[in-house]
Simulated assay, not measured.
Amino acid sequence: MNNVIATVDISKCFGKLTAVDQVSLHVGAGEIYGFLGLNGAGKTTMIRMLLGMIKPTAGRAYINGRGVGAGNYELWKNVGYMVETPNAYPELTVYENLEIARKLRNIKERSATKRIVEKLALTEHMHKRARDLSLGNKQRLGIAKALIHQPQILILDEPTNGLDPAGIVEVRNLLKELAANRGVTILVSSHLLGEISKTARKIGIIHKGKLLNEFDVDEFERLKERRVQVKVKNMGYAKAVLENNGYAMTQKEDFLICSDPKAVASPEKIAEILVTNGCPPRSLGTEQEDLESYFLRLIGEKGN
């Protein structure tokens, strides 16, 4: 798959602070790429470098195979973006803000504004001043400005901030529709792991400026940890019994946990050993990591 958005060992330092540290991203055509990290991990700095808003200290960013730089104006004709807090003229209405965006994008079609207002569910707020909008509707306005020229590349920084659950679902469905039906390449940064897991086909995890992993959703099935979780009355004794039978156990709160593949494949053996040794389990089950659990384990292991 051709990479529509890519970086090669890109870094950004602010004095002694390294905000992004030798990151290489690969976003394929028509892909929704979820860029995950805690607040302050380096997501927004990376997006600003992708958009040419700040210059990298080292490395390069590429859009459609062309290097991002201050002079490459043609790159942005087919890119829509929203970075951090969506900007708008506060004294102007939603409609007026979008009309300005339409004219700045040199869009001749006057119906473009009405079309995007309807698509982002802003019709009832069309004549409200931007300053009077709720946080969620300001976010909708920002996304509308990013989409008004029907770009083939979309870069969004925390697009669901301030949205209620229904609004989050609307944005999720919109992004999926753009990628599936129009082949739009989308990079979306977020700290909402559950939401990204429902949207993205490929995920990159950044922590303290470093890219810890990059994988597609199919590969995630191989990466996520599966484990057996047991609850018993005498935790210390049960742990010793299982370890004497070759199972590496860890204790977490009221449970004993084992990630050994042989335990996951045959959890009934765990139950059999415990019953034989006089400490039958109160509960026993297998579980597998979701994206949130994997993320927390990864930043714990690699990101300290």
Score class of each variant (00 low, 15 high):
residue 12 K to S: 05
residue 13 C to Q: 14
residue 14 F to A: 06
residue 14 F to G: 08
residue 17 L to Q: 07
residue 19 A to V: 12
residue 19 A to T: 11
residue 21 D to F: 11
residue 21 D to C: 10
residue 21 D to V: 13
residue 23 V to R: 07
residue 25 L to A: 05
residue 25 L to Q: 02
residue 25 L to P: 03
residue 25 L to G: 05
residue 26 H to E: 13
residue 27 V to T: 08
residue 27 V to I: 13
residue 28 G to Q: 08
residue 29 A to E: 12
residue 29 A to S: 10
residue 30 G to I: 02
residue 31 E to N: 04
residue 32 I to D: 01
residue 33 Y to I: 04
residue 33 Y to P: 04
residue 34 G to N: 03
residue 34 G to E: 01
residue 36 L to N: 11
residue 38 L to H: 15
residue 39 N to K: 09
residue 39 N to R: 06
residue 40 G to V: 10
residue 40 G to S: 06
residue 40 G to L: 02
residue 40 G to M: 03
residue 41 A to V: 09
residue 41 A to H: 12
residue 42 G to C: 07
residue 42 G to Q: 04
residue 42 G to L: 03
residue 43 K to T: 11
residue 44 T to G: 07
residue 45 T to D: 05
residue 46 M to H: 07
residue 49 M to W: 05
residue 49 M to T: 12
residue 49 M to S: 07
residue 49 M to Y: 07
residue 50 L to D: 01
residue 50 L to R: 01
residue 50 L to H: 03
residue 54 I to Q: 03
residue 56 P to R: 06
residue 56 P to S: 02
residue 57 T to R: 09
residue 57 T to E: 05
residue 60 R to L: 10
residue 60 R to S: 14
residue 60 R to T: 15
residue 61 A to D: 09
residue 62 Y to N: 06
residue 62 Y to G: 13
residue 63 I to K: 03
residue 63 I to E: 03
residue 63 I to R: 01
residue 64 N to S: 10
residue 66 R to C: 12
residue 69 G to V: 13
residue 70 A to H: 10
residue 71 G to A: 14
residue 71 G to V: 12
residue 72 N to C: 08
residue 72 N to S: 13
residue 73 Y to N: 14
residue 73 Y to R: 15
residue 74 E to T: 14
residue 74 E to P: 09
residue 76 W to A: 03
residue 76 W to K: 03
residue 77 K to H: 11
residue 79 V to L: 00
residue 79 V to T: 04
residue 79 V to D: 01
residue 81 Y to P: 06
residue 83 V to I: 15
residue 84 E to C: 04
